[in-house]
Design a binder for these strands. Sequence first.
DNA 1: AATGAATGAGAGTTCATTCAT
DNA 2: GATGAATGAACTCTCATTCAT
Lengths: 228, 228, 228, 228
Amino acid sequence: MSRTAEAVKATVRYGQKKFTMKLDIKPRLDRDARREAILDVAGEVFMEQGFAAASMSEIAARLGGSKGTLYNYFRSKDELFAAYVQRHCFVQSTAMFDLVADDGNIEQTLVTLGRAYLDFVLSDFAQTNYRVIIAEAPRNPEIGRIFYESGPMNGARRLADVLAQATARGELRADDPLLAAHQFIGLCQNRMLKARHCNYMPEPTAEEIAKEVDAAVRTFLAAFGTKA
Amino acid sequence: MSRTAEAVKATVRYGQKKFTMKLDIKPRLDRDARREAILDVAGEVFMEQGFAAASMSEIAARLGGSKGTLYNYFRSKDELFAAYVQRHCFVQSTAMFDLVADDGNIEQTLVTLGRAYLDFVLSDFAQTNYRVIIAEAPRNPEIGRIFYESGPMNGARRLADVLAQATARGELRADDPLLAAHQFIGLCQNRMLKARHCNYMPEPTAEEIAKEVDAAVRTFLAAFGTKA
Amino acid sequence: MSRTAEAVKATVRYGQKKFTMKLDIKPRLDRDARREAILDVAGEVFMEQGFAAASMSEIAARLGGSKGTLYNYFRSKDELFAAYVQRHCFVQSTAMFDLVADDGNIEQTLVTLGRAYLDFVLSDFAQTNYRVIIAEAPRNPEIGRIFYESGPMNGARRLADVLAQATARGELRADDPLLAAHQFIGLCQNRMLKARHCNYMPEPTAEEIAKEVDAAVRTFLAAFGTKA
Amino acid sequence: MSRTAEAVKATVRYGQKKFTMKLDIKPRLDRDARREAILDVAGEVFMEQGFAAASMSEIAARLGGSKGTLYNYFRSKDELFAAYVQRHCFVQSTAMFDLVADDGNIEQTLVTLGRAYLDFVLSDFAQTNYRVIIAEAPRNPEIGRIFYESGPMNGARRLADVLAQATARGELRADDPLLAAHQFIGLCQNRMLKARHCNYMPEPTAEEIAKEVDAAVRTFLAAFGTKA
DNA sequence: AATGAATGAGAGTTCATTCAT
DNA sequence: GATGAATGAACTCTCATTCAT
């Protein structure tokens, strides 16, 4: 997110000629670290401008490096974009994994999971990436695939496991746990998700998220719960 | 190209000078039809390539006209895009309007509405537009707004009315009809919507839609229904 | 300078179609008057923007007419420009003619003539035309010629006549009256003329002009006068 | 194209990180030389066609390079034009500076200075630049200012110094030396300057210049001289 | 005589990419 | 590995001009 290089330029005269002194203060990074740094900056720019409108020049400039260097790490803008998406999917996948839970009380579990899920999915970060990625999906189906699998599908599967366990414990009646998982997520997010996609509302507050999730849990348990 | 103009000319005196009054009664059809034709083609291209990647040259070429002509109808690419979005929103709004229904049986009504809604929303046409429009929403909030209001918000409101009536009839217990509407829509579409966004699955068949809606209706009525 | 047409547009529905009603309130002008009106507007635009940057569209728009009409009166932008220059030269020539004078007292005559000359030549109007015209002179020598002859040459000749008469009356010793005329003009205007060309100073006030002319007359009479 | 770069690299530790310090000592010659070459060609084209009619494509074509390269050196056509004007002003300023003189005999000094001044000012080079620059002055006052100050104002001031010294020596009676300087210049150039502006006459020969200056000196000394 | 839609060449500018150093 | 100058295609947009009505 922050620049990885600082440079000071000075012009001096020596005899009749001008010289530029460029003083690069640049952390020595190995190849992988530099690659990551490039992806950080590229991510910023892609998220701000979208794929087509983002320019390699701008990415290079924000890096404090040259365009040539960019091309030493990524063969093309397309490849750079793909790498950035892959990394985002990894992050997203991790976010899904962090939806730990299941303390044995399904209501509390759903509340906790639902809030954590919405907190991530409705964030500016996730939304901006979502817009950029699905915009490119038709022209690059592979990108759509890895994104879908690492994110929505992954999250639903993990939730389905939780629902299956609760069903096994007798707390829930969910014959098709994956379907039920999708339904729970749909209950949680339908309203705010589209509004967020359309930039119609800002990042929701914790209270707004809590309210939406609570309502979703009530409806979900009314349909799938086993309590009287 | 041909113009069946009707014009009436009259000469009047005002003070010491003569004026010509020319009353052109001219069908706007030609110009309007051409404008529509441009929007058709522009829509195609925007949907295929997205806003940034679409080029005015390509639009002109597909039209079989010149770039100059394009600019006679729309002052800029932005304006052309805005006009295309507006028209799509009108279509979308109409689609929401066509979700008539409510034959007095809430279960049947929800099935009918849900299928019609998904049929439209999950179509290639709607999806492609959705991707393009939300990709531009951050840079053009107005576009995001009119799209959200004409589509998701509009659809949810109309459904909320139906739910409110069913509640009044005693068929349903929906204290917050708008929330319930959003929840119903979420139940219906969560799974396929994201898969469609990501280009992970093709247009669903009628059977797939029916299955998803039926499951949603079951869950919804289990939570909100009044029948034993 | 002012628009020659006023038009009101209205759109009405008749049945299912839209019609435009255009109510042109346009003074009936014969061909020559319309030509003059076009030249008025074209002059405005050329003076504001220069030849190359001026556009036929803008001229047509300010006229309240169509580009087609422009081309009914002038075959090309070049021809329109030439016509405008010709007319300006006629105006300029008239301004030179209006430098009447010679009341028998050469000092007073020079003061009067000098002031009138500077008043015209240093005006925004004359300056703006001067810039435009000499910018085009290399590419259109005919324009440079008629301008030079109608303006600077014309003015100098008329002044030379006055000086010759004063010499004949014994008030002056000007063996080469045309040379003396050019010298007088040079004395009057050298300083402010270039500053005006360069847009370095605004239109001079009457006092500034008077001061400059008075100094010029003193120097001129010190060199050419016959009084002790 | 070839670059004789000298670079010194050093690695330093700062805190826990290593930094590379790269000290580029690089002759600016190549880049500067190329910039000059671009300005040469751009100057040609601007002088031939004027600012508005000159095209970046043509400049690039004459350079034998691409338009992209042009934009690597100048951010816009405006900036290129400004750089060209600046350079011309530097040349012009130098020309004014070269009007050395004052050998103690004011008559001879005026003749020498006058001829040198006219020789420069009436040259095709100076005239063509004059036309282009004053044509743009209304839209770019800064350009008009630096041109006026480096040229006309500068020349007049230097001449004023000479006149003041001659007055101090008793050779001249010029109470307001700057006014006298402007008057002398006006005497010298009024006739031919305007004819040159209008492209009415070709570059004057040395004889023509000499004749005009001699006449100016006679008139000037008749007015300001102290000799009987 | 007047219109205004259509044209196509060409304007300034940007950009992904290459390559010699 | 890093650089940044060079490229040329493509971009959005403008304009003088034409012509059917």
